[in-house]
C-alpha cells in the first residue's frame, strides 16, 4: 500500500506540473486582462498540432516545442487583436463570448488543417522507456515533462520578478490606471501578456503531445481542469496556480487508488472545500 501511494505521489507531482504550466498562462491572462480565457484549451490543442507538424517534418522535438510556444503566442496576439480588443469597451461578458467563439473557430480550423483523425507522436528515443526508482517506475517522458515544466515556470517567474518588462506586468496587474498614467502603453502590455499566456498554453500542448496525442477536443478536457486549478490557487494570485496545479495532480492521482472513477469529480469537490475554508483561494489575497 505504501508503495502504491508513493508511486502515485510521484506520478501526481509529474502530471501536476503540466497542469501548473497550463494554468500559469491562464493566470497571467486573468491577472492582466481580467478575463478567464475560454480559448485557452483551443490554444493548448493548437500547440500540440503545431508541435506534431514540426516533428513530422523531421525536425527535433525541441524545435517542435519552440514552434508550439511561438505559434500559440501569435494566435494569442490575433485573439487579442480580433476578438478581445474590438469588444473591450463593452465589459468582459462580450469578451468571454468572443473568446468562446474564437475557441470554436480554432478547434474547427485544426480539424480542417490536420484532419479529423487524431495524431500520435513518440518522444525522442532518449526520453522513451521508464526509470526504476526502486519503489516505483516512472516513465522517462513523464519525468522530463515535469522537470521541463518546472524550468519554464521558473524562467517566467524570473521574467516577471526580475526584469523591467516584468515590473510593468506587475504594475499592470496591480494598478492598471496608475500604470497608464505613468505613460506606459498598457494596451501593448496587455497584448504582450496575452501572448505570453497563450504561448504557455501552446507549450503545454506541445509537451502533452507524446502523452495524449493531438485531437481537436483535447482543449475542452484541459480547460475545465485549468479553471479549477486557477480557482483553487486563488484568482488574485499570480503564482497560486502553480502550487494548486501540483495539488490537483496529486489529489487526482491518489484518488485512483481508492475510487478511480471519482478521480475527476474529486478535483471539483476539493475546489469547493477550499472555497468554503478560504473563499479567496489558497493563495489569494483579500
Amino acid at each position: 500500500m505504501l508503495w502504491l501511494i508513493s508511486a502515485q505521489l510521484v506520478n501526481g507531482i509529474a502530471i501536476g506540473m503540466i497542469y501548473a504550466l497550463m494554468s500559469f498562462g491562464l493566470s497571467i491572462i486573468k491577472g492582466l486582462l481580467n478575463i478567464p480565457n475560454f480559448a485557452h484549451g483551443a490554444l493548448y490543442a493548437l500547440g500540440a498540432y503545431l508541435c506534431y507538424s514540426v516533428v513530422s517534418l523531421g525536425m527535433s522535438f525541441a524545435v517542435g516545442l519552440a514552434v508550439a510556444f511561438l505559434g500559440a503566442a501569435l494566435a494569442g496576439l490575433a485573439l487579442d487583436r480580433f476578438a478581445i480588443q474590438p469588444v473591450s469597451g463593452s465589459g468582459y461578458l462580450p469578451q468571454l463570448i468572443t473568446l468562446f467563439g474564437a475557441a470554436l473557430v480554432i478547434e474547427q480550423a485544426l480539424l480542417i488543417g490536420w484532419g479529423t483523425v487524431g495524431l500520435s507522436y513518440s518522444p525522442p528515443p532518449i526520453l522513451r522507456g521508464a526509470i526504476n526508482l526502486g519503489f516505483t517506475i516512472v516513465p522517462r517522458y513523464i519525468a522530463f515533462a515535469s522537470v521541463f515544466s518546472a524550468l519554464v515556470i521558473s524562467a517566467v517567474w524570473l521574467l516577471i520578478e526580475r526584469t523591467k518588462f516584468g515590473a510593468y506586468v506587475r504594475a499592470g496587474i496591480e494598478r492598471p490606471e496608475t500604470t497608464q498614467a505613468l505613460g506606459i502603453n498598457v494596451d501593448l502590455l496587455l497584448s504582450a501578456g496575452m501572448m505570453l499566456g497563450a504561448g504557455l498554453a501552446g507549450l503545454a500542448g506541445g509537451l502533452a503531445l507524446p502523452l495524449v496525442g493531438a485531437t481537436s477536443t483535447m482543449g475542452g478536457d484541459m480547460l475545465g481542469i485549468a479553471f479549477v486549478v486557477l480557482v483553487i490557487g486563488g484568482l488574485g494570485s499570480l503564482y497560486g496556480s502553480i502550487a494548486a496545479g501540483v495539488l490537483v495532480g496529486v489529489v487526482q492521482s491518489l484518488m485512483t487508488i481508492a475510487a478511480p472513477a471519482a478521480s475527476t469529480a474529486i478535483i471539483y469537490a476539493v475546489m469547493i472545500g477550499v472555497l468554503l475554508l478560504r473563499p479567496q483561494g489558497l493563495f489569494g489575497e483579500r
Binding site: W3, L4, A7, Q8, N11, G12, A14, I15, T136, I137, P139, I142, L211, V212, M218, D221, M222, Q252, S253, T256, I257, P260, A261, S263, T264
Partner: peptide, 20 residues
C-alpha cells in the same frame, strides 16, 4: 481491474498500478 472515467486523458496512474 481499474475503472477509468470516460474521456480520461491521464492513464499513467492506472498503468503504474497495472505494471506493478
Amino acid at each position: 481491474n481499474d475503472n477509468h472515467p470516460s474521456g480520461e486523458r491521464q492513464y499513467t496512474q492506472y498503468l503504474t498500478k497495472a505494471v506493478a
